[in-house]
C-alpha cells in the first residue's frame, strides 16, 4: 500500500515541469497578442476602485469607523476588492479549467489530478500581481504594513482555495451542463453587491445586518478589511469556517470527479 502511494507520488512528481509549463502557458494564453499582458488583470479591479473612490469617497468616509488614515475609504475598498477578486478569479479558473483544457484531456494522458494544481497556480500568480500592485498603492498613500499583515499570506491562500473548490465543482458540472458557465457571472454580480465591499455593514439598517452572517464571502472581505485597514486580527473563527466550507467543496468535487471521470472526456 505504501509502495503504491509512493509510486503514485513519484509519478506525479515527474510531472512537475509540466505543471510549471502549464501554469505559464495558461497565463500567457490569456494575454496572447496583447502588449500589456498581465497588467490587464490589474486594470479591472483598480479601475473599479478608482471609480468608486471618485464617486463615493465623501459620502462613505464619514460613515466608516474611526481609523488612523484619511484615505480610509479607498483602502477599505481595495481590501474588499482584493478579497473579492481573489475569490471570483479562482472560482472562474476552477469553472473553466476542464473545458479550456478539453483538447489536452482528450488527446494526452497525464495525471488529471494536476489540473486543480495548475488552476491554483495560475490563480495565485494573478492574485500575487494584484496584491503587489495594491501594496504599492498603500505605501503611496502612506499606509504601512504592520505585524498584523502577516495574516495576509494565510488569508490569500484560503481565499484562492475557497474560490477554487467551488469553481471546480461547478466546472465539473459545466462539462455536462454548459448553462452553468453562463449563469455564474450573473450570480457573482448579485453576490458582489450582497457583500460589503463598496459599502460597509454599519451603513445599513440594523435589521439587515443578520443576513451577512449567511454570506461566507462577506467573512473573507471582512477579514481583509480588518487586517489591512483596521490593522487588527481577523476573526479566526470565521476563517476556520471558510476553511471548513472549502474542505467540503473540495471533497464534493473529488467525489463528483470519481463518479463522472468515465464520461468526462466524452463530453469535452
Amino acid at each position: 500500500m505504501t509502495d503504491r502511494l509512493f509510486a503514485v507520488a513519484r509519478y506525479w512528481w515527474s510531472y512537475r515541469y509540466f505543471v510549471r509549463s502549464a501554469i505559464r502557458n495558461d497565463l500567457k494564453a490569456r494575454y496572447a497578442r496583447s502588449k500589456l499582458g498581465l497588467l490587464w488583470a490589474l486594470v479591472q479591479p483598480l479601475a473599479m476602485v478608482l471609480i468608486y473612490t471618485l464617486i463615493l469617497s465623501h459620502l462613505m468616509a464619514a460613515k466608516l469607523p474611526a481609523t488612523s488614515t484619511v484615505y480610509a475609504y479607498p483602502i477599505y475598498l481595495m481590501s474588499g476588492m482584493l478579497a473579492w477578486t481573489l475569490f471570483s478569479e479562482s472560482l472562474a479558473r476552477g469553472l473553466g479549467i476542464f473545458v479550456e483544457q478539453g483538447e489536452l484531456i482528450k488527446k494526452v494522458a497525464f495525471p488529471r489530478a494536476l489540473l486543480p494544481i495548475i488552476a491554483f497556480g495560475s490563480a495565485s500568480i494573478n492574485g500575487l500581481a494584484l496584491l503587489s500592485m495594491m501594496l504599492v498603492v498603500f505605501l503611496f498613500l502612506g499606509h504601512w504594513p504592520t505585524l498584523h499583515s502577516l495574516w495576509v499570506p494565510a488569508m490569500f491562500v484560503l481565499t484562492v482555495w475557497f474560490g477554487l473548490s467551488i469553481g471546480l465543482l461547478l466546472g465539473l458540472m459545466n462539462v455536462f451542463f454548459r448553462d452553468i458557465n453562463q449563469a455564474v457571472p450573473v450570480i457573482l454580480q448579485f453576490l458582489f453587491w450582497l457583500t460589503p465591499i463598496v459599502y460597509a455593514v454599519p451603513m445599513l439598517p440594523v435589521e439587515y445586518h443578520g443576513y451577512f452572517d449567511w454570506n461566507p464571502v462577506a467573512k473573507l472581505t471582512a477579514a481583509f478589511q480588518d487586517v489591512i485597514l483596521y490593522q487588527g486580527n481577523p476573526a479566526e473563527w470565521h476563517l476556520l469556517m471558510i476553511a471548513g466550507i472549502a474542505l467540503l467543496f473540495t471533497a464534493l468535487s473529488a467525489g463528483l470527479y470519481l463518479r463522472v471521470r468515465h464520461e468526462l472526456a466524452d463530453h469535452l
Binding site: Y11, S14, Y17, S21
Partner: peptide
C-alpha cells in the same frame, strides 16, 4: 510544453 507532458524535466 509537449515534452513536459511526457513527464520530462526542464
Amino acid at each position: 510544453h509537449g515534452l513536459s507532458m511526457m513527464g520530462l524535466s526542464a
